[in-house]
């Protein structure tokens, strides 16, 4: 009987842990902006995207590829979804699972874009995709799509200036 109950408990836990496999933290700009200004040895790639953005979805595999290539170095890939907060469960998490994405995904939900877009970069008009690549010594911002070669060159130049 005891083992039966244990099995029941384990069974009930299985689907729970499966649904918790993907967590997407939600930030407003105040809690997000620390990611843009880390002063350490790590090189950060921060890509703004959304599940409905055609050119974003097209370039995501290249960002995943770069994440894999540089994973053993002082490197951090952060994919910042600008999907609607109400669609995390219905769109964002299923998308991440379907594509088997390994990079960390957070969701930035802050309606006051007129204020925070300029804090990411004053030249950004607000269209996505857009990407920031930086470490404490160098900084690069790009609005629009990138090829893997462009991304790869920028990362390797930033890691080893």
């Amino acid at each position: 009987m005891k083992s039966f109950i244990t099995i029941l408990i384990i069974l009930s836990l299985v689907p729970l842990s499966a649904t918790q496999a993907q967590e997407v933290a939600v930030h407003d700009f105040d809690s997000f902006k620390a990611y843009l200004n880390k002063q350490n040895d790590t090189t950060y790639v921060i890509n703004f995207w959304a599940t409905w953005c055609i050119p974003c979805v097209k370039e995501l595999p290249d960002f995943e590829k770069a994440n894999e290539k540089y994973q053993l170095q002082k490197f951090k890939m952060l994919l910042v979804s600008l999907d609607f907060k109400s669609q995390i469960e219905s769109s964002v998490i299923p998308f991440i699972e379907k594509k088997g994405m390994a990079s960390e995904v957070v969701l930035l939900s802050d309606p006051n874009a007129n204020e925070w877009i300029n804090q990411v970069n004053p030249s950004w008009t607000g269209s996505i995709p857009a990407t920031v690549i930086y470490n404490k010594d160098s900084y690069y911002f790009h609005e629009g799509s990138m090829t893997f070669e462009e991304l790869d060159t920028l990362i390797s130049n930033t890691i080893k200036p």
Binding site: W52, C53, I54, P55, L82, A113, N114, I117, N118, W124, T125, G126, S127, I128, P129, G144
Partner: peptide, 10 residues
């Protein structure tokens, strides 16, 4: 003049 997030024009 204001800014917003939006879909890039294709």
């Amino acid at each position: 003049f204001t800014k917003a997030i939006g879909c890039s024009i294709k």
